[in-house]
Simulated assay, not measured.
Amino acid sequence: MKVLGISGWSGAGKTTLLAQLIPLLTARGVKVSTIKHAHHEFDVDKPGKDSYRHREAGASEVLISSAKRYAIMHELRGTAEPTLEELLARLSPVDLVLVEGFKKSGHAKIEVWRASVGKPMLQAEDPTVIAVASDAAIPGLPVPQLDANQPQQVADFILAWLAGGKREARRGAAE
C-alpha cells in the first residue's frame, strides 16, 4: 500500500480537500482508505447503546457489524497511542492510504497551506513534503505547488505519484 499524507495546520482545509479527492481518485479506479489523527478525545459510539455499554464494562475491543459495515473500537486503557505504522498494519490492503495528521511521521505528504491561517509552512522543515497545495502563489517553493481550490489538479498529481513515484509527479506538476 502506498501512503500519502495530507498535512497542514488546523483550519488550512485538509479535510475539505480530502473529501474532494476521495471520489476523484476512486472514480479513476484507485482503492482508497484513510487514517485521521485526532488531537482530542473522541467517541464514535453513543451512550446507552449496547456497544457503548460493552466498552464501559471493560471490553478491550468491541466490534459492531451489520450487512453494510463493521467497526472495531479499541480502548487503549492507558497504553501508548499506536504509531502510524501500527495503524496501517490493521487496515485491509488498498492502493492508497490517505493520512490526515501525523505531521511528524516519515511518509510522503502534500502540505495544505493557506496564509490566512497565520502559521509557517511545514515544507521548509519537512523533507517528506512532496508538494504544497495552496490558495495563493508561493514564490521560490522548491516542490511543486498545487491549487488547493482545484482538487482535480491535486488528484492528477497523486495519480502521477502513484504511477511513478515523486520524481515523475514533481516533473509533471512543474510543466
Results as ranks from 00 to 15, higher is better:
residue 103 K to I: 01
residue 63 L to M: 13
residue 63 L to H: 13
residue 36 K to G: 03
residue 39 H to L: 02
residue 97 V to M: 11
residue 142 P to Q: 10
residue 141 L to D: 06
residue 89 A to R: 14
residue 17 L to M: 03
residue 33 S to R: 14
residue 94 V to D: 01
residue 50 D to Y: 01
residue 23 P to M: 05
residue 114 R to L: 07
residue 97 V to I: 08
residue 124 A to T: 10
residue 86 E to D: 12
residue 26 T to K: 11
residue 62 V to C: 11
residue 52 Y to V: 04
residue 119 K to I: 08
residue 60 S to N: 15
residue 139 P to Y: 07
residue 62 V to L: 04
residue 102 F to Y: 13
residue 42 F to G: 04
residue 37 H to F: 04
residue 117 V to W: 00
residue 129 V to F: 01
residue 104 K to I: 06
residue 102 F to C: 07
residue 26 T to W: 02
residue 83 T to R: 01
residue 102 F to R: 08
residue 47 P to N: 08
residue 32 V to S: 02
residue 39 H to Y: 10
residue 20 Q to W: 03
residue 85 E to G: 13
residue 135 D to E: 10
residue 105 S to Y: 11
residue 67 A to Y: 07
residue 114 R to C: 12
residue 66 S to H: 10
residue 37 H to Y: 07
residue 99 V to L: 06
residue 73 M to E: 14
residue 60 S to F: 15
residue 97 V to K: 05
residue 52 Y to T: 11
residue 125 E to H: 15
residue 35 I to L: 04
residue 55 R to N: 07
residue 17 L to W: 02
residue 63 L to D: 12
residue 121 M to W: 02
residue 31 K to I: 12
residue 122 L to C: 04
residue 75 E to K: 12
residue 122 L to G: 03
residue 131 A to V: 06
residue 49 K to Q: 07
residue 101 G to V: 01
residue 60 S to H: 14
residue 56 E to P: 01
residue 123 Q to W: 11
residue 92 S to D: 15
residue 138 I to H: 00
residue 18 L to I: 11
residue 72 I to F: 05
residue 131 A to Y: 01
residue 75 E to W: 11
residue 70 Y to E: 14
residue 21 L to M: 00
residue 33 S to M: 12
residue 106 G to I: 03
residue 73 M to Q: 14
residue 127 P to A: 13
residue 51 S to E: 02
residue 52 Y to N: 06
residue 21 L to S: 00
residue 66 S to Y: 10
residue 122 L to A: 06
residue 49 K to N: 11
residue 45 D to W: 05
residue 103 K to S: 04
residue 67 A to I: 12
residue 44 V to E: 14
residue 117 V to C: 01
residue 48 G to D: 12
residue 78 G to N: 07
residue 138 I to E: 02
residue 142 P to E: 12
residue 122 L to F: 08
residue 28 R to Y: 06
residue 42 F to H: 13
residue 111 E to G: 02
residue 76 L to P: 02
residue 29 G to Q: 11
residue 100 E to A: 05
residue 128 T to V: 01
residue 75 E to Q: 15
residue 38 A to E: 08
residue 99 V to H: 06
residue 102 F to L: 04
residue 77 R to H: 15
residue 129 V to H: 03
residue 120 P to T: 14
residue 89 A to S: 14
residue 18 L to A: 03
residue 64 I to C: 06
residue 113 W to C: 09
residue 78 G to H: 07
residue 98 L to Y: 02
residue 36 K to Q: 05
residue 91 L to I: 07
residue 71 A to W: 09
residue 98 L to P: 04
residue 137 A to K: 14
residue 126 D to A: 09
residue 105 S to V: 09
residue 53 R to L: 10
residue 54 H to G: 03
residue 117 V to L: 08
residue 24 L to S: 02
residue 40 H to I: 04
residue 19 A to N: 15
